[in-house]
Amino acid sequence: MINQTITLTAFGYFGKSFLDKVAEAVKYEFPFPVRIIESHVDLAEYFDPSRRQYDGNKLLKSVNKLARQDTGKTIGLFDVDLYIPILTYIFGQAILNGETGIASTYRLSNEHYGLEPDHELLLQRFTKVVIHELGHAFGLIHCTTPTCVMRPSTYVEDIDQKGLHFCQQCKGKL
């Protein structure tokens, strides 16, 4: 693994301590400096009124354009409902072996499912999605180890079931 920086770019409203905790967990998994920056895109351009969701593919391309690619990997952090044309929703996505990825808190909060808010759980879920997408950006594909963070998750419950870390095999591939 060559030396590079991981950039977490916040495109929505996130509390500072929330982002610091995500960055700390990311730093624990990857041996690179992690920095947090804030940026802005006009989300209206990405909104699909018929689906009432934001186009993840377009957002990924924009994040890719904005990112300083020479510095390493960038994950764009959002708080809106993401979709890609073929799927009803996504938690996040990244370009395999690419420079960028995106992740959103929108479908990770308990409130979205009519449950009591749980800030800690949201933080955990979001951190897992961010590390998962970074894993893809570093070339990792989905893993079948139940506890590995690279295990695919299509429901929020799947995210809760897996761990926050890479399994030994995935760690070895990084």
Binding site: N57, P85, I141
Partner: peptide
């Protein structure tokens, strides 16, 4: 025939190995 569908599915399947 849609680029976006092909791209999305390609990305999704690549991530799945």
């Amino acid at each position: 025939d849609e680029d976006s569908v092909r791209d999305s599915l390609t990305n999704w399947f690549l991530e799945d190995g």
